[in-house]
Design a protein around this nucleic acid. Sequence first.
DNA 1: ACCTGAACACCGTTCAAGT
DNA 2: ACCTGAACACCGTTCAAGT
Lengths: 206, 206
Amino acid sequence: MPRAAVKKRAYHHGDLRRALLEAALAIVASAGPSALTIRDVARRVGVSQAAPYHHFADKDALLAAVAQEGFVAFTAALVAGRARGGTKVAARLRELGAAYVAFAVANPSALRVMFGGAVCISDHPTLKQTADGAFAVLLESMLEGQKAGVLRRGDPSELALLAWSMLHGLAMLWLDGALHGPTGAPVDVEQLARKASDAIVRGLSG
Amino acid sequence: MPRAAVKKRAYHHGDLRRALLEAALAIVASAGPSALTIRDVARRVGVSQAAPYHHFADKDALLAAVAQEGFVAFTAALVAGRARGGTKVAARLRELGAAYVAFAVANPSALRVMFGGAVCISDHPTLKQTADGAFAVLLESMLEGQKAGVLRRGDPSELALLAWSMLHGLAMLWLDGALHGPTGAPVDVEQLARKASDAIVRGLSG
DNA sequence: ACCTGAACACCGTTCAAGT
DNA sequence: ACCTGAACACCGTTCAAGT
Protein backbone atom coordinates (compact mmCIF):
# COMPACT_ATOMS: atom_id res chain seq x y z
CA MET A 1 0.00 0.00 0.00
CA PRO A 2 1.96 2.95 -1.28
CA ARG A 3 -0.75 5.22 0.10
CA ALA A 4 0.41 4.65 3.64
CA ALA A 5 4.04 5.02 2.70
CA VAL A 6 3.36 8.51 1.48
CA LYS A 7 1.66 9.32 4.75
CA LYS A 8 4.80 9.61 6.84
CA ARG A 9 4.78 13.09 8.37
CA ALA A 10 8.25 14.36 7.65
CA TYR A 11 10.08 17.60 7.38
CA HIS A 12 8.78 17.84 3.87
CA HIS A 13 5.05 18.04 3.44
CA GLY A 14 3.51 15.65 0.93
CA ASP A 15 1.71 18.16 -1.21
CA LEU A 16 1.80 21.42 0.65
CA ARG A 17 0.51 23.44 -2.28
CA ARG A 18 -2.68 21.41 -2.47
CA ALA A 19 -3.13 21.45 1.29
CA LEU A 20 -2.75 25.23 1.36
CA LEU A 21 -5.36 25.68 -1.34
CA GLU A 22 -7.82 23.51 0.53
CA ALA A 23 -7.23 25.22 3.83
CA ALA A 24 -7.71 28.59 2.13
CA LEU A 25 -11.06 27.49 0.75
CA ALA A 26 -12.11 26.23 4.17
CA ILE A 27 -11.29 29.56 5.76
CA VAL A 28 -13.18 31.48 3.10
CA ALA A 29 -16.15 29.18 3.63
CA SER A 30 -16.26 29.84 7.33
CA ALA A 31 -15.32 33.50 7.50
CA GLY A 32 -15.21 35.09 4.05
CA PRO A 33 -12.27 36.09 1.87
CA SER A 34 -11.41 39.16 3.91
CA ALA A 35 -10.73 36.96 6.93
CA LEU A 36 -8.25 34.85 5.03
CA THR A 37 -4.81 35.08 6.50
CA ILE A 38 -1.71 33.42 5.19
CA ARG A 39 -0.54 32.77 8.71
CA ASP A 40 -3.81 31.08 9.51
CA VAL A 41 -3.62 28.94 6.39
CA ALA A 42 -0.13 27.85 7.41
CA ARG A 43 -1.26 27.18 10.97
CA ARG A 44 -4.10 24.93 9.85
CA VAL A 45 -1.81 22.91 7.66
CA GLY A 46 0.70 22.68 10.49
CA VAL A 47 3.54 24.42 8.81
CA SER A 48 5.54 27.55 9.54
CA GLN A 49 4.19 30.97 8.58
CA ALA A 50 6.88 31.35 5.96
CA ALA A 51 6.27 28.02 4.24
CA PRO A 52 3.43 29.17 1.96
CA TYR A 53 5.82 31.61 0.31
CA HIS A 54 7.67 28.69 -1.24
CA HIS A 55 4.51 27.85 -3.19
CA PHE A 56 2.82 31.19 -3.74
CA ALA A 57 4.47 34.52 -4.32
CA ASP A 58 2.10 36.24 -1.94
CA LYS A 59 -1.42 36.20 -0.57
CA ASP A 60 -2.80 37.50 -3.84
CA ALA A 61 -1.20 34.62 -5.74
CA LEU A 62 -2.74 32.13 -3.34
CA LEU A 63 -6.18 33.63 -3.92
CA ALA A 64 -5.58 33.68 -7.66
CA ALA A 65 -4.78 29.97 -7.55
CA VAL A 66 -8.01 29.29 -5.69
CA ALA A 67 -9.90 31.30 -8.31
CA GLN A 68 -8.09 29.48 -11.10
CA GLU A 69 -9.27 26.09 -9.87
CA GLY A 70 -12.71 27.54 -9.38
CA PHE A 71 -12.97 28.75 -12.96
CA VAL A 72 -11.86 25.38 -14.32
CA ALA A 73 -14.57 23.57 -12.36
CA PHE A 74 -17.07 26.31 -13.19
CA THR A 75 -16.48 26.01 -16.93
CA ALA A 76 -16.94 22.25 -16.75
CA ALA A 77 -20.17 22.72 -14.79
CA LEU A 78 -21.53 25.12 -17.40
CA VAL A 79 -20.72 22.75 -20.24
CA ALA A 80 -22.26 19.81 -18.41
CA GLY A 81 -25.36 21.81 -17.54
CA ARG A 82 -25.88 22.95 -21.10
CA ALA A 83 -25.57 19.36 -22.30
CA ARG A 84 -28.35 18.37 -19.91
CA GLY A 85 -30.60 20.67 -21.91
CA GLY A 86 -30.54 18.27 -24.84
CA THR A 87 -30.83 19.58 -28.36
CA LYS A 88 -33.33 22.42 -28.11
CA VAL A 89 -31.50 25.72 -27.88
CA ALA A 90 -33.83 27.32 -25.35
CA ALA A 91 -33.59 24.29 -23.08
CA ARG A 92 -29.81 24.28 -23.38
CA LEU A 93 -29.66 27.91 -22.32
CA ARG A 94 -32.09 27.30 -19.51
CA GLU A 95 -29.98 24.48 -18.10
CA LEU A 96 -26.79 26.45 -18.56
CA GLY A 97 -28.36 29.17 -16.42
CA ALA A 98 -29.44 26.64 -13.84
CA ALA A 99 -25.92 25.19 -13.78
CA TYR A 100 -24.43 28.64 -13.24
CA VAL A 101 -26.48 29.25 -10.15
CA ALA A 102 -26.22 25.65 -8.98
CA PHE A 103 -22.46 26.05 -9.00
CA ALA A 104 -22.80 29.15 -6.85
CA VAL A 105 -24.97 27.25 -4.41
CA ALA A 106 -22.61 24.28 -4.29
CA ASN A 107 -19.39 26.31 -4.20
CA PRO A 108 -20.14 29.64 -2.57
CA SER A 109 -16.58 30.08 -1.33
CA ALA A 110 -15.05 29.47 -4.73
CA LEU A 111 -17.45 31.90 -6.34
CA ARG A 112 -16.73 34.50 -3.72
CA VAL A 113 -13.04 34.28 -4.48
CA MET A 114 -13.65 34.20 -8.24
CA PHE A 115 -15.99 37.18 -8.36
CA GLY A 116 -15.86 38.79 -4.95
CA GLY A 117 -13.24 41.33 -5.88
CA ALA A 118 -10.65 39.83 -3.52
CA VAL A 119 -8.56 38.96 -6.55
CA CYS A 120 -8.34 41.14 -9.65
CA ILE A 121 -8.66 38.69 -12.53
CA SER A 122 -6.94 40.84 -15.12
CA ASP A 123 -3.84 41.04 -12.91
CA HIS A 124 -3.23 37.35 -13.60
CA PRO A 125 -2.95 36.45 -17.29
CA THR A 126 -3.52 32.73 -16.84
CA LEU A 127 -6.51 33.35 -14.64
CA LYS A 128 -7.88 35.84 -17.15
CA GLN A 129 -7.59 33.23 -19.88
CA THR A 130 -9.40 30.63 -17.82
CA ALA A 131 -12.16 33.07 -16.90
CA ASP A 132 -12.52 33.95 -20.58
CA GLY A 133 -12.97 30.23 -21.22
CA ALA A 134 -16.04 30.22 -19.02
CA PHE A 135 -17.41 33.24 -20.84
CA ALA A 136 -16.74 31.47 -24.13
CA VAL A 137 -19.21 28.73 -23.19
CA LEU A 138 -21.90 31.36 -22.91
CA LEU A 139 -20.83 33.00 -26.11
CA GLU A 140 -21.01 29.70 -28.01
CA SER A 141 -24.51 29.20 -26.73
CA MET A 142 -25.57 32.60 -27.98
CA LEU A 143 -24.17 31.78 -31.40
CA GLU A 144 -26.10 28.52 -31.32
CA GLY A 145 -29.21 30.51 -30.53
CA GLN A 146 -28.64 32.94 -33.35
CA LYS A 147 -27.99 30.13 -35.81
CA ALA A 148 -31.23 28.48 -34.76
CA GLY A 149 -33.06 31.78 -35.21
CA VAL A 150 -34.08 31.83 -31.56
CA LEU A 151 -31.97 34.86 -30.71
CA ARG A 152 -31.84 38.17 -32.53
CA ARG A 153 -29.01 38.95 -34.94
CA GLY A 154 -26.24 41.36 -34.03
CA ASP A 155 -23.06 41.28 -31.98
CA PRO A 156 -23.18 37.92 -30.19
CA SER A 157 -20.82 39.08 -27.49
CA GLU A 158 -23.30 41.78 -26.56
CA LEU A 159 -25.98 39.15 -26.16
CA ALA A 160 -23.60 37.02 -24.13
CA LEU A 161 -22.77 39.98 -21.93
CA LEU A 162 -26.43 40.59 -21.16
CA ALA A 163 -27.07 36.93 -20.42
CA TRP A 164 -23.96 36.81 -18.29
CA SER A 165 -25.07 39.90 -16.37
CA MET A 166 -28.38 38.32 -15.55
CA LEU A 167 -26.89 35.08 -14.26
CA HIS A 168 -23.99 36.78 -12.54
CA GLY A 169 -26.31 39.22 -10.81
CA LEU A 170 -28.58 36.45 -9.65
CA ALA A 171 -25.70 34.39 -8.29
CA MET A 172 -24.12 37.39 -6.55
CA LEU A 173 -27.38 38.53 -4.98
CA TRP A 174 -27.86 35.03 -3.70
CA LEU A 175 -24.34 34.94 -2.26
CA ASP A 176 -24.94 38.28 -0.55
CA GLY A 177 -28.07 36.89 1.03
CA ALA A 178 -30.22 39.45 -0.74
CA LEU A 179 -32.57 36.74 -1.97
CA HIS A 180 -34.51 36.20 1.17
CA GLY A 181 -38.11 37.28 1.30
CA PRO A 182 -39.26 39.70 4.00
CA THR A 183 -40.01 36.61 6.04
CA GLY A 184 -36.43 35.44 5.69
CA ALA A 185 -37.61 32.48 3.69
CA PRO A 186 -35.04 31.42 1.12
CA VAL A 187 -35.94 31.27 -2.55
CA ASP A 188 -35.38 28.34 -4.88
CA VAL A 189 -32.57 30.05 -6.76
CA GLU A 190 -31.99 27.29 -9.21
CA GLN A 191 -35.60 27.50 -10.35
CA LEU A 192 -35.27 31.26 -10.44
CA ALA A 193 -32.20 30.84 -12.67
CA ARG A 194 -34.30 28.86 -15.14
CA LYS A 195 -36.86 31.64 -15.20
CA ALA A 196 -34.07 34.15 -15.65
CA SER A 197 -32.69 32.21 -18.61
CA ASP A 198 -36.11 31.95 -20.19
CA ALA A 199 -36.60 35.69 -19.75
CA ILE A 200 -33.26 36.34 -21.41
CA VAL A 201 -34.10 34.11 -24.35
CA ARG A 202 -37.43 35.89 -24.79
CA GLY A 203 -35.88 39.30 -24.22
CA LEU A 204 -33.15 38.71 -26.75
CA SER A 205 -35.26 36.80 -29.27
CA GLY A 206 -35.25 37.73 -32.95
CA MET B 1 -17.86 85.51 7.90
CA PRO B 2 -18.71 82.69 10.28
CA ARG B 3 -17.21 80.26 7.75
CA ALA B 4 -13.69 81.37 8.61
CA ALA B 5 -14.39 81.36 12.30
CA VAL B 6 -15.24 77.70 12.09
CA LYS B 7 -12.01 77.07 10.28
CA LYS B 8 -9.73 77.44 13.28
CA ARG B 9 -7.80 74.19 13.57
CA ALA B 10 -8.24 73.30 17.19
CA TYR B 11 -8.01 70.31 19.41
CA HIS B 12 -11.51 69.48 18.35
CA HIS B 13 -12.07 68.73 14.71
CA GLY B 14 -14.96 70.55 13.05
CA ASP B 15 -16.81 67.56 11.72
CA LEU B 16 -14.54 64.59 12.09
CA ARG B 17 -17.23 62.07 11.26
CA ARG B 18 -17.86 63.63 7.86
CA ALA B 19 -14.13 63.99 7.18
CA LEU B 20 -13.52 60.34 8.01
CA LEU B 21 -16.27 59.20 5.66
CA GLU B 22 -14.85 61.26 2.84
CA ALA B 23 -11.31 60.06 3.42
CA ALA B 24 -12.56 56.48 3.48
CA LEU B 25 -14.24 56.93 0.12
CA ALA B 26 -11.07 58.47 -1.30
CA ILE B 27 -9.00 55.50 -0.18
CA VAL B 28 -11.47 53.02 -1.64
CA ALA B 29 -11.40 54.96 -4.89
CA SER B 30 -7.65 54.75 -5.18
CA ALA B 31 -6.94 51.32 -3.79
CA GLY B 32 -10.14 49.35 -3.25
CA PRO B 33 -12.02 48.46 -0.09
CA SER B 34 -9.53 45.83 1.02
CA ALA B 35 -6.82 48.48 1.21
CA LEU B 36 -8.86 50.63 3.54
CA THR B 37 -7.22 51.04 6.88
CA ILE B 38 -8.60 52.93 9.83
CA ARG B 39 -5.14 54.18 10.68
CA ASP B 40 -4.74 55.52 7.17
CA VAL B 41 -8.10 57.24 7.29
CA ALA B 42 -7.08 58.91 10.55
CA ARG B 43 -3.70 59.87 9.11
CA ARG B 44 -5.26 61.57 6.08
CA VAL B 45 -7.58 63.57 8.25
CA GLY B 46 -4.71 64.51 10.53
CA VAL B 47 -5.98 62.94 13.66
CA SER B 48 -4.74 60.23 15.98
CA GLN B 49 -5.28 56.57 15.13
CA ALA B 50 -7.69 56.21 18.01
CA ALA B 51 -9.87 59.18 17.13
CA PRO B 52 -12.11 57.38 14.61
CA TYR B 53 -13.28 55.09 17.38
CA HIS B 54 -15.15 57.98 18.94
CA HIS B 55 -17.33 58.16 15.83
CA PHE B 56 -17.50 54.57 14.63
CA ALA B 57 -17.54 51.43 16.72
CA ASP B 58 -15.07 49.75 14.43
CA LYS B 59 -13.89 49.48 10.86
CA ASP B 60 -17.01 47.61 9.85
CA ALA B 61 -19.21 50.40 11.20
CA LEU B 62 -17.24 52.95 9.20
CA LEU B 63 -17.78 50.95 6.03
CA ALA B 64 -21.45 50.49 6.88
CA ALA B 65 -21.80 54.26 7.20
CA VAL B 66 -20.20 54.73 3.78
CA ALA B 67 -22.60 52.18 2.34
CA GLN B 68 -25.52 53.84 4.08
CA GLU B 69 -24.83 57.18 2.41
CA GLY B 70 -24.31 55.37 -0.85
CA PHE B 71 -27.70 53.69 -0.72
CA VAL B 72 -29.44 56.97 0.04
CA ALA B 73 -27.88 58.64 -2.99
CA PHE B 74 -28.45 55.51 -5.06
CA THR B 75 -32.16 55.42 -4.28
CA ALA B 76 -32.50 59.08 -5.22
CA ALA B 77 -30.65 58.44 -8.49
CA LEU B 78 -32.97 55.56 -9.37
CA VAL B 79 -36.07 57.64 -8.68
CA ALA B 80 -34.71 60.58 -10.69
CA GLY B 81 -33.73 58.30 -13.56
CA ARG B 82 -37.11 56.68 -13.72
CA ALA B 83 -38.79 60.08 -13.79
CA ARG B 84 -36.67 61.01 -16.81
CA GLY B 85 -38.43 58.18 -18.62
CA GLY B 86 -41.64 60.19 -18.69
CA THR B 87 -44.98 58.41 -18.60
CA LYS B 88 -44.47 55.31 -20.73
CA VAL B 89 -43.74 52.35 -18.51
CA ALA B 90 -41.13 50.78 -20.77
CA ALA B 91 -39.27 54.08 -21.05
CA ARG B 92 -39.39 54.56 -17.29
CA LEU B 93 -37.87 51.13 -16.75
CA ARG B 94 -35.28 51.76 -19.41
CA GLU B 95 -34.16 54.99 -17.76
CA LEU B 96 -34.21 53.41 -14.34
CA GLY B 97 -31.80 50.81 -15.68
CA ALA B 98 -29.62 53.48 -17.23
CA ALA B 99 -29.60 55.38 -13.94
CA TYR B 100 -28.55 52.24 -12.05
CA VAL B 101 -25.50 51.78 -14.20
CA ALA B 102 -24.80 55.49 -14.48
CA PHE B 103 -24.60 55.59 -10.70
CA ALA B 104 -22.07 52.78 -10.79
CA VAL B 105 -20.00 54.65 -13.34
CA ALA B 106 -20.17 57.90 -11.38
CA ASN B 107 -19.67 56.34 -7.94
CA PRO B 108 -17.64 53.18 -8.38
CA SER B 109 -16.20 53.38 -4.87
CA ALA B 110 -19.56 53.76 -3.24
CA LEU B 111 -20.94 50.84 -5.20
CA ARG B 112 -17.97 48.71 -4.32
CA VAL B 113 -18.58 49.33 -0.65
CA MET B 114 -22.34 48.85 -1.02
CA PHE B 115 -22.16 45.59 -2.94
CA GLY B 116 -18.55 44.44 -2.84
CA GLY B 117 -18.99 42.20 0.14
CA ALA B 118 -16.75 44.32 2.37
CA VAL B 119 -19.77 45.05 4.51
CA CYS B 120 -22.53 42.55 5.20
CA ILE B 121 -25.74 44.54 4.76
CA SER B 122 -27.92 42.33 6.90
CA ASP B 123 -25.56 42.83 9.84
CA HIS B 124 -26.69 46.46 10.04
CA PRO B 125 -30.47 46.89 10.46
CA THR B 126 -30.55 50.53 9.39
CA LEU B 127 -28.44 49.81 6.36
CA LYS B 128 -30.64 46.86 5.48
CA GLN B 129 -33.69 49.10 5.62
CA THR B 130 -32.09 51.69 3.37
CA ALA B 131 -30.99 49.06 0.88
CA ASP B 132 -34.52 47.68 0.87
CA GLY B 133 -35.66 51.18 0.00
CA ALA B 134 -33.63 51.06 -3.19
CA PHE B 135 -35.11 47.68 -4.05
CA ALA B 136 -38.57 49.10 -3.38
CA VAL B 137 -38.11 51.58 -6.24
CA LEU B 138 -37.61 48.70 -8.61
CA LEU B 139 -40.52 46.81 -7.12
CA GLU B 140 -42.84 49.79 -7.59
CA SER B 141 -41.80 49.98 -11.20
CA MET B 142 -42.64 46.35 -11.75
CA LEU B 143 -46.07 46.91 -10.25
CA GLU B 144 -46.51 49.87 -12.59
CA GLY B 145 -45.58 47.60 -15.46
CA GLN B 146 -48.04 44.93 -14.40
CA LYS B 147 -50.84 47.48 -13.98
CA ALA B 148 -50.15 48.80 -17.47
CA GLY B 149 -50.26 45.26 -18.84
CA VAL B 150 -46.68 45.53 -20.05
CA LEU B 151 -45.34 42.93 -17.64
CA ARG B 152 -46.69 39.47 -16.98
CA ARG B 153 -48.84 38.78 -13.94
CA GLY B 154 -47.52 36.88 -10.96
CA ASP B 155 -45.34 37.63 -7.94
CA PRO B 156 -44.03 41.16 -8.58
CA SER B 157 -41.07 40.67 -6.27
CA GLU B 158 -39.92 37.79 -8.46
CA LEU B 159 -40.00 40.09 -11.46
CA ALA B 160 -38.16 42.74 -9.49
CA LEU B 161 -35.55 40.22 -8.44
CA LEU B 162 -34.88 39.24 -12.04
CA ALA B 163 -34.65 42.85 -13.19
CA TRP B 164 -32.42 43.64 -10.24
CA SER B 165 -30.17 40.70 -11.09
CA MET B 166 -29.72 41.92 -14.62
CA LEU B 167 -28.80 45.46 -13.63
CA HIS B 168 -26.75 44.38 -10.66
CA GLY B 169 -24.80 41.91 -12.76
CA LEU B 170 -24.14 44.47 -15.43
CA ALA B 171 -22.93 47.03 -12.92
CA MET B 172 -20.74 44.52 -11.10
CA LEU B 173 -19.19 43.16 -14.28
CA TRP B 174 -18.42 46.71 -15.27
CA LEU B 175 -16.83 47.43 -11.90
CA ASP B 176 -14.73 44.30 -12.20
CA GLY B 177 -13.49 45.44 -15.57
CA ALA B 178 -15.00 42.42 -17.26
CA LEU B 179 -16.70 44.62 -19.84
CA HIS B 180 -13.75 45.31 -22.04
CA GLY B 181 -13.63 43.80 -25.48
CA PRO B 182 -10.68 41.62 -26.50
CA THR B 183 -9.11 44.83 -27.75
CA GLY B 184 -9.46 46.38 -24.33
CA ALA B 185 -11.90 48.90 -25.74
CA PRO B 186 -14.46 49.94 -23.17
CA VAL B 187 -18.16 49.47 -23.83
CA ASP B 188 -20.83 52.13 -23.49
CA VAL B 189 -22.32 50.59 -20.37
CA GLU B 190 -25.09 53.06 -19.97
CA GLN B 191 -26.36 52.25 -23.45
CA LEU B 192 -25.94 48.58 -22.64
CA ALA B 193 -28.03 49.12 -19.52
CA ARG B 194 -30.86 50.48 -21.68
CA LYS B 195 -30.67 47.40 -23.86
CA ALA B 196 -30.64 45.25 -20.77
CA SER B 197 -33.75 46.96 -19.45
CA ASP B 198 -35.51 46.55 -22.77
CA ALA B 199 -34.61 42.87 -22.82
CA ILE B 200 -36.00 42.48 -19.31
CA VAL B 201 -39.25 44.18 -20.26
CA ARG B 202 -39.58 41.93 -23.30
CA GLY B 203 -38.53 38.86 -21.38
CA LEU B 204 -40.98 39.49 -18.58
CA SER B 205 -43.81 40.77 -20.75
CA GLY B 206 -47.31 39.37 -20.41
C1' DA C 1 14.58 21.52 -3.00
C1' DC C 2 11.91 22.64 0.81
C1' DC C 3 11.23 24.38 5.39
C1' DT C 4 11.98 27.24 9.90
C1' DG C 5 12.94 31.27 13.25
C1' DA C 6 13.45 35.66 13.92
C1' DA C 7 12.79 40.10 12.37
C1' DC C 8 10.50 44.48 10.32
C1' DA C 9 6.92 47.40 9.35
C1' DC C 10 2.50 47.35 9.47
C1' DC C 11 -2.87 46.65 11.42
C1' DG C 12 -7.36 46.83 14.63
C1' DT C 13 -8.66 47.94 19.00
C1' DT C 14 -8.49 49.42 23.90
C1' DC C 15 -7.89 52.52 27.67
C1' DA C 16 -6.05 55.56 30.91
C1' DA C 17 -4.94 60.17 30.64
C1' DG C 18 -5.12 64.77 28.67
C1' DT C 19 -7.93 69.41 26.91
C1' DA D 1 -17.54 65.77 25.00
C1' DC D 2 -13.74 64.78 22.25
C1' DC D 3 -9.01 63.56 21.49
C1' DT D 4 -4.11 61.44 22.29
C1' DG D 5 -0.19 58.04 23.55
C1' DA D 6 1.07 53.90 24.56
C1' DA D 7 0.12 49.25 24.57
C1' DC D 8 -1.44 44.38 22.98
C1' DA D 9 -2.17 40.89 19.88
C1' DC D 10 -2.28 40.37 15.50
C1' DC D 11 -0.68 40.56 9.93
C1' DG D 12 2.28 40.19 5.31
C1' DT D 13 6.70 39.47 3.90
C1' DT D 14 11.73 38.67 3.93
C1' DC D 15 15.92 36.18 4.65
C1' DA D 16 19.64 33.86 6.65
C1' DA D 17 20.02 29.44 8.38
C1' DG D 18 18.69 24.67 8.91
C1' DT D 19 17.40 19.46 6.89
